[in-house]
Design a protein around this nucleic acid. Sequence first.
DNA 1: TTTATATGCAACAAAATGGTTGCGTATGAA
DNA 2: TTCATACGCAACCATTTTGTTGCATATAAA
Lengths: 106, 106
Amino acid sequence: MSEKRNKIFKAIADPTRREIFHVLVIDSALSISQLSTQFDISRQGVTKHLKLLEEAKMVNIQAKGRERYCEASLDALQEIKNWLSFYDVFWDDKLKALGDHLDQMT
Amino acid sequence: MSEKRNKIFKAIADPTRREIFHVLVIDSALSISQLSTQFDISRQGVTKHLKLLEEAKMVNIQAKGRERYCEASLDALQEIKNWLSFYDVFWDDKLKALGDHLDQMT
DNA sequence: TTTATATGCAACAAAATGGTTGCGTATGAA
DNA sequence: TTCATACGCAACCATTTTGTTGCATATAAA
């Protein structure tokens, strides 16, 4: 479904969300409170961002006692790579066309 | 600068914008009016999307007579690839760790 | 010249976004 | 048990986003 794609593109659109993801890739796993200390916004602000990241499958959260630990899920990025890969064909075509053009100049 | 990155991530966040880009990759170059016929929103709506795409360097527009022709610029996608490439390292690490783990099982 | 087309600009409106604060609850520590 | 911590939920608010319509202008066509 394209809904999955929409969600991840929405998720990475916000710079704070990209930074949260970045932090979690580097330093997993962190509780929500621990994570929040690294940002200027409130814990609830971070929680809201986490919700979107979680819906986009970019972050997994699991409860442990009274804390909830977050970890980044790299696999979700495949959706973006898939989107990009479609355009590689056209990119290559243009490079090829440029190559042909350069060949003609010799 | 990160402003460039912000702009392209914003640009691709909207599904209509992604579709406009897609159409322009397939069928460049189209005038704004021609392009608009392919979407349910108004011409001005499309123009607004084009403005963001242009600022993100994903689309180039040049006037020809009373028309303005739009074409997609694939190069802008490199910014997204750059962002993704950082995480490839971690991805590989995890695969490697998985590999090591599987080795231990034999 | 007159008319039709392609466009930009501005004002507007509804909805989404990104953030806040306050409060209630569950869990861990003293 | 009592207190502090980690969290979710809901209400609220300002700004941005995504769309609209109306109108003015420049260019092409009749």
